[in-house]
């Protein structure tokens, strides 16, 4: 598909949004990158899908996307779920961009709640869909108050919350959306990715952008920026991973989903990242008799 004029797709502007909206989002993105971890308000538009389905991520993607980009969209690690498929189809329709499921091929990866297992490179940008950008909202519901707390870097409340977790449960009971400090200054919600993925954000070579459509906030982590999960010296951060191997590819290091297989308590663990899992299965099939024993 060609977009010489930029108006190639059935009466929609290139990448759906009008140019004024894109410019507004682009200005917000640049300030977000300049102030790592700080939530920049933006005028989120109504999108042709409901809040909660990635309207923030889609608007960020639409503002950065060009005709030569290759787009990957994942939902909980999977390329083939409804949300991922419909967002990929949306951009192929309104921007004519090529979609892919291969992490390594993509220039832009829009994600809901996972970071791919394959390490990202400097040539890639990852766009997170964020339902609730304010990490303090369960502790302080007043946005005017949380803005002040961010202004003063007053994050004692979050430390108290983590401390109370440890006092009650013996460990921090947050398995996803585990709060991080960005660049030693801003407390940030990593979006509801599993805490397992938090270490991948630290000094990632790729640019990380976050869009929250309903809450109308954009924030960012530039490449090679320090991202520390909050913890205590005597209770260091420990990312959780199910104790097992993937039933399909045998990976002992990837993040696993538990899948119920029957109504008699049968279950198995499989990789949450479908592309990573498939590539490992293909590699194992190409080089037989290595580690394929437990493949189903």
């Amino acid at each position: 598909m060609s977009h010489d004029s930029g108006f190639g797709s059935g009466g929609y502007n290139f990448a759906y949004l009008d140019e004024n909206t894109k410019r507004m989002i682009r200005r917000a993105l640049l300030k977000a990158v300049a102030i790592p971890g700080h939530q920049v308000p933006f005028g989120a538009r109504e999108m042709p899908l409901p809040y909660g389905w990635g309207t923030g991520g889609i608007q960020v993607t639409a503002a950065i996307l060009g005709p030569r980009d290759v787009l990957k969209v994942i939902d909980q690690g999977a390329d083939d779920t409804t949300n991922a498929v419909s967002i990929r189809r949306f951009f192929s329709r309104v921007a004519g961009v090529r979609g892919t499921t291969r992490t390594a091929e993509a220039t832009i990866i829009q994600t809901r709640h996972r970071i791919p297992e394959t390490p990202l490179t400097e040539a890639q940008t990852i766009v997170y869909q964020v339902p609730m950008p304010e990490p303090l909202f369960r502790l302080e519901p007043r946005l005017a108050e949380t803005r002040r707390m961010h202004a003063l870097a007053d994050y004692g409340l979050m430390h108290v919350k983590l401390y109370e977790d440890i006092a009650r449960h013996g460990h921090v009971s947050t398995a996803y959306n585990y709060p991080v400090m960005v660049g030693g200054r801003y407390l940030m919600s990593p979006s509801p990715i599993p805490a397992f993925d938090n270490p991948k954000m630290h000094r990632m070579p790729a640019l990380q952008l976050f869009g929250a459509g309903r809450e109308k906030k954009i924030y960012a982590v530039p490449p090679y920026t320090e991202v520390r999960s909050l913890d205590f010296e005597d209770h260091p951060f420990r990312p959780h991973r199910a104790d097992g191997c993937c039933a399909l590819c045998g990976s002992a290091t990837s993040y696993l989903d538990e899948v119920v297989t029957d109504d008699r308590g049968g279950r198995m663990f499989v990789c949450s990242d479908t592309d990573y899992c498939e590539e490992r299965q293909e590699a194992a099939a190409a080089a037989p008799a290595s580690e394929t024993e437990d493949a189903a």
């Binding site: 004029s5 894109k22 990158v33 950065i64 060009g66 640019l207």
Partner: peptide, 14 residues
């Protein structure tokens, strides 16, 4: 091309 030139310009600035 106001649409695509602005897009490539923005990506360079980003």
């Amino acid at each position: 091309d106001p649409v695509l030139d602005a897009q490539s310009g923005f990506r360079a600035v980003l």
